[in-house]
Design a protein around this nucleic acid. Structure first.
Length: 370
DNA sequence: TCACTGTTCGCCCTCTCTTC
DNA sequence: GAAGAGAGGGCGAACAGTGA
């Protein structure tokens, strides 16, 4: 029996705590900041005050409620138990009326009949989901609660993230029409090709294959790396890591050892190479803080003038059969090595794109933060 | 020039799935 | 069932744009 069942009053009170307290988060964060940037330095102090206040409030209400319940129990004795039983019965009746009991039963039946297979694997999601909004994760989207609607305490309006209402689309760094939603098979094919490339790397450097998903290439731009690999080959601190692409162009990025992922700088790499969902990359650690990247892309490359110089390892979906000729890959690897020298010249002619050392935003941030 | 509003970017946290 | 992995989304700082 839960506390809520034992003490119905407690449920009502805890609900009140949620409604009243949660909007305080808005006050400490966006609200104040939007109100006046020059007072932004007050935020940490205010945050602490509000947190202490919130804690005190919870504690006080807790004392009040427990005292009240104690008093009720002492005073009314059996009356309370009767009232509780009555309430439980009422609730049961309401559930019956709403059909919730039936739904609950059918769900539990469904779950019990659906025995889990011994070997678990991720199933490809139905295309209907992608039709609405591409989601890589198989878990359901969580509703984002908005406590502002529950309680109006006169806060200034929250800053709008984007004119596009969709929460996902608002984070896109590329036009919607460029966003790809590859099938399960396409993704698997690209990954296989990348693995093939990896297995044919002759350098003996540590490497791994990473399949791109939406959050890697369209928004967020957080690239988690295999933790085992990070543990074995990368430092546990925050370090700058150079990403070197197939043309030898370099991109500074920030590796966060604690979270085993790439953040700053990865975005520039992903956008510059127009990486898409489903592409697979081979990461080869060629120096302690330098990755060489090979891509195995599931799409046709767009041969615009700006892209003519790139490419060593684009493996098209049609070529992504499992039996890629080993010599072909070897040749490609070798040609890549040449390409870093020859290709650089070609790149200069066709692309006029210098190797990047630092993205504008990152540079700006570093300067600002000092 | 200043104040305000909107956008971009990087980081961090939450939550679900997978594996052991 | 626990632990780890990873996807998704929120938040804040900085930057950019706009109008008075």
């Amino acid at each position: 029996m839960t506390v809520g069942e034992r003490f119905p009053v407690m449920r009502a009170v805890s609900l009140t705590i949620t409604v009243v307290v949660m909007p305080l988060k808005g006050v400490t964060g966006v609200g104040l900041k939007e109100e006046n940037r020059k007072t932004a330095f007050l935020n940490p102090v205010l945050k602490k005050i509000l947190l202490v206040f919130r804690g005190c409030l919870r504690q006080t209400i807790g004392y009040l409620v427990s005292g009240l319940l104690q008093a009720m129990a002492n005073k009314s004795g059996n009356t309370y138990e009767e009232a509780r039983k009555q309430r439980v019965e009422d609730n049961k009746k309401r559930f019956e009326d709403l059909g919730i009991s039936k739904i609950s039963k059918s769900l539990s039946d469904l779950k019990s009949s659906d025995k889990k297979p011994v070997q678990r694997y991720s199933k490809p999601k139905s295309e209907n989901i992608y039709m609405l909004e591409p989601r890589r994760s198989s878990r359901a989207r969580n509703p984002i609660p908005s406590y502002r609607d529950d309680v109006d305490i006169g806060l200034p309006p929250l800053r709008k993230r984007s004119k596009i209402s969709s929460s996902w689309a608002s984070y896109l760094a590329r036009p919607l029409h460029e966003v790809k939603t590859p099938s399960y098979e396409e993704r698997a094919q690209a990954f296989k090709c990348a693995e093939k490339i990896q297995s044919n790397l002759t350098s003996g450097n540590p490497s791994f294959v990473k399949s791109m998903v939406r959050s890697h290439v369209y928004s967020c731009f957080w690239l988690g790396l295999p933790s085992k690999f990070c543990e074995d080959h990368l430092p546990k601190t925050i370090v700058d890591i150079v990403l070197e692409d197939e043309n030898g162009a370099e991109y500074d990025s920030v590796y966060i050892g604690k979270r085993t992922g790439l953040s700053g700088g990865w975005r520039a790499f992903a956008l510059d190479h127009k990486l898409d969902d489903g592409d697979a990359l081979v990461f080869e650690l060629i120096e302690p803080a330098r990755f060489k990247l090979y891509s195995s892309q599931i799409r046709e490359p767009r041969w615009s003038a700006g892209m003519a110089a790139r490419v060593v390892y684009i493996v098209r979906a049609s070529n992504c059969s499992s039996d890629i000729d080993d010599t072909t890959v070897d040749d490609e690897v070798n040609s890549d090595a040449e390409n870093t020298s020859n290709g650089a010249k070609e790149s200069d002619l066709n692309n006029e794109k210098e190797p990047k050392r630092l993205t504008r935003s990152k540079k700006g941030r570093k300067q600002k933060k000092r």
